[in-house]
């Protein structure tokens, strides 16, 4: 180790300045983090009540409830996952197990990367044009779910692909040598070995769905009516995030908005923790 005393003044200054800058930046970041988290919880938690969580908005009693929004969020998450799982996992299986043409693989991967860079407002616009108008689904949760499927496809493909790659080649060879066909090998050997990657992809997608607003505003609309699952998918409805926007920007109901923000932040925290846990397992396996 070098002794600081023996350094020239200039080098000492350089080290000091850079170190200060690093601390300053890290300090600012931490302060921002602390402020965001504590401010949202401080403003939001007192506004969360059982009544808010378990009722729908009512003009008669002049009260606001977010139960319809909670249910809408749940419906849209379920619908999106149901569609995206076969699509994303299938695409990943094709890329890692079947594809022989490297150029085609490059094209598909490039397409997935492009999709992940497109801003959500453009998804909203195209979703509105294609799903709501062209396929005449109208403004509905289902149209919103389809839009979200396209948005989250890259995430599911990437995480599934990563975990498919970790299944040792020898497992596949062993199964093949026992006479199993390709599909059987994938179904019984490869897929069970990559459940954690698929799970990570799903959790990350749920996180993005929870946070999405711009893509849903024009595709899923902003109604607050209470519906069952299938009925709900066919009608317009605001998810929690869209409801936050509507309450804050259009109605000035900041108490409700902060309550939703606090709920969303807690959900994000839970999702991040689970995703870290699952992907840590995955990483351990990559190392092993």
């Amino acid at each position: 180790m070098i002794k600081m005393k023996t350094l020239s003044k200039k080098r000492k200054m350089y080290a000091l300045v850079m170190r200060c800058l690093m601390w300053l930046a890290a300090g600012i970041t931490c302060a921002l983090l602390l402020f965001m988290i504590s401010y949202i919880l401080w403003r939001g938690l007192p506004n969360i009540s059982w009544q808010l969580l378990s009722t729908k908005p009512s003009y008669l009693s002049n009260s606001i409830g977010i139960l319809p929004n909670i249910l809408n969020t749940l419906y849209i998450v379920i619908a999106t996952l149901v569609i995206i799982l076969p699509l994303g996992v299938g695409a990943a299986i094709y890329l890692t197990e079947y594809a022989k043409n490297q150029r085609l693989v490059a094209v598909i991967e490039y397409a997935a990367e492009t999709l992940s860079g497109i801003p959500s407002i453009i998804y909203g616009l195209v979703g509105m044009l294609v799903f709501c108008q062209f396929f005449s689904l109208g403004t509905s949760l289902f149209a919103g779910a389809l839009t979200l499927v396209i948005m989250n496809l890259p995430t599911v493909i990437r995480t599934t692909q990563e975990s498919l790659k970790t299944v040792p080649q020898s497992y596949r060879e062993g199964a093949f040598s026992l006479g199993a066909g390709k599909w059987r090998v994938i179904r019984t050997v490869v897929l069970p070995g990559s459940v954690d990657g698929i799970l990570t992809g799903c959790i990350l997608s749920v996180g993005r769905i929870l946070g999405e607003s711009a893509a849903l505003l024009f595709t899923a609309g902003f109604a607050h009516s209470l519906n069952g699952f299938f009925e709900g998918l066919n009608s317009a409805g605001a998810t929690l995030t869209v409801a936050l926007y509507v309450y804050a920007k259009e109605q000035g109901e900041f108490g409700v908005a902060f309550a939703i923000a606090a709920i969303l932040m807690i959900l994000t925290l839970i999702i991040n923790l689970t995703a870290t846990l699952v992907s840590n397992r995955l990483k351990r396996r990559i190392k092993a």
């Binding site: 965001m36 607003s213 926007y245 902060f258 923000a261 969303l264 994000t268 999702i271």
Partner: peptide
């Protein structure tokens, strides 16, 4: 966590 917070929450704050 900061990366996962929805953009409308940033807008609200």
């Amino acid at each position: 966590l900061l990366a996962g917070i929805p953009s409308v929450v940033y807008g609200l704050v």
